[in-house]
Simulated scan of single mutants.
Amino acid sequence: MLSEHYELIEALATNFAIAVLFLLIGLAIQDVLNKGNVPKYGRWFVWLVLFLGCAGFIAKGIIQAFWEAGM
């Protein structure tokens, strides 16, 4: 049974690992921003860039799902 679902398990594990990586990057950025006395405008810009990276990853997953479904 495991060999039948190997590809699905691999895809889920990869997506989970990347989500955890984004979380850790976010925590590291928050720590650096707090310790560096970064102005509010700079903080907004940093979080915007991080959000756009996450949004791009999510959009890629949605597009890939539609593409593989044949739509």
Rank of each mutant, 00 (worst) to 15 (best):
N37A: 11
T14K: 14
T14Y: 13
E68C: 03
L50F: 00
G36P: 00
I62M: 12
L24P: 01
I29L: 12
G61Y: 01
F45D: 02
L21R: 15
V46I: 06
G53Y: 01
F57I: 08
L21E: 15
A17F: 00
I18Q: 15
L2K: 08
G36V: 00
L8I: 03
V20P: 01
L12P: 03
A55F: 04
G36D: 03
F51W: 09
I58S: 08
L23A: 09
F66D: 07
L52V: 15
K60Q: 05
L21S: 15
K60H: 08
L23V: 12
Y41S: 15
E7T: 05
E68W: 04
S3Q: 06
L21G: 06
A59S: 13
I58Q: 00
A13I: 02
E68Q: 12
N34K: 11
G53N: 13
E7P: 02
W67H: 13
W67Y: 15
V46T: 07
L48K: 00
V49C: 08
L21Y: 14
A19P: 00
G70E: 04
K35S: 13
N15E: 15
A19C: 07
D31I: 10
V38M: 11
V46C: 02
M1T: 12
I63Y: 03
M1W: 06
V46K: 01
V49M: 12
P39G: 02
G42P: 00
F66H: 12
F51D: 06
V49F: 02
F51A: 15
G56K: 06
F66A: 15
L21C: 14
Y41T: 10
N15K: 13
G56S: 03
M1R: 01
K35R: 15
L33S: 04
F22C: 09
P39S: 07
F57R: 04
Y41A: 15
I18R: 14
N34L: 03
S3R: 05
A55E: 10
A65T: 12
V38Q: 09
G61E: 03
F66C: 12
L12S: 07
T14G: 10
I25G: 00
W44V: 11
T14L: 11
I18P: 01
A17V: 09
F57N: 13
A13F: 03
F16M: 09
I9F: 12
W44S: 11
L23N: 03
